[in-house]
Design a protein around this nucleic acid. Structure first.
Lengths: 143, 143
DNA sequence: CTATTATATACTGATTTACTAGGTTTTTAC
DNA sequence: GTAAAAACCTAGTAAATCAGTATATAATAG
């Protein structure tokens, strides 16, 4: 289950993709448009920033803009960064796997398969894809 | 992220599939074989029971057995029951969706697609499939 | 009757989630 | 050079969830 952290980060990035082509966009504006607490976004954005996703300017008329074009960011990129990974079970959080049962675990390959299915899906969708809704008029994002 | 509840439930069901063809299997045995606290399994098993997955007998030589053959239970069935659903975000937990933003939400179809991808994958794997590891010799469970 | 099992309910410590609060630093307009 | 606007930093907190324990009751086989 992805938390508000990841979901808000995605909406923040989408907001920048839609509104921040030239000027820097202050967090205040994003918070208002998206209906999310600015204080909470302030806490989420350093993760995006440290990942090199953003350009920032401080002070008057400062704010944020995307470092690259919207088609260069996948949903998978953003969620992995802000959620701290997308492992479906805790065993798969570290690699190599620490669990002493790993060698004989009958369910492990199934979980790995699930992880692959999730990552493949999310890596196939960019911010630009989400904006160009016509790419999938019936809401069908299957790969 | 699926919790120990769902993972232990799956291992419990697999243990029954492997060891409980004729006799009733007591929880004590499952707990020992799987290295899981019996007390914790006692708390998880009523969910499986209420879902009609099990046959039970109390008292001496009592225990549990599967109500149907292992190929009749998918991983999706078991996880949805014990985890209380497999929605990737809280918005998708109820249907119809309650979120007032749903109509204009640009990310919602993407999340629905993720939910479908997850469910399709997990609905395609039965307990029997997990036991017959040779079905996927390289651990490749893709559909 | 007794040992063995399931079943039911309540409790608990630790962690995570979703925030809020308060402050400091940097930049710009005037 | 001052005021305002913004990013940036750190801490706190109420509620929920997680991962179990603990205790008691009910049914069954022999």
């Amino acid at each position: 289950m992805v938390s508000t952290r990841g979901r808000y980060a995605l909406r923040l990035m989408l907001d920048l993709a839609e509104h921040g082509s030239e000027d820097f966009v202050p967090l205040k504006d994003i918070a208002e448009r998206q209906g999310i607490s600015k204080k909470y976004l302030e806490q989420i954005i350093p993760t995006l920033n440290r990942a090199g996703f953003l350009q920032t300017n401080r002070g008057f008329q400062g704010g944020y803009k995307l470092a690259k074009n919207p088609d260069k960011y996948t949903v998978g990129d953003i969620l992995r960064e802000t959620e701290g990974g997308l492992a479906p079970i805790s065993c798969l959080e570290q690699s190599p796997i620490q669990c002493p049962r790993a060698a004989e675990c009958i369910t492990l390959p199934m979980w790995k398969g699930l992880q692959d299915v999730i990552n493949n899906y999310l890596n196939g969708i960019t911010l630009q894809d989400l904006i160009d809704k016509n790419k999938a008029p019936n809401g069908d994002y299957y790969i």
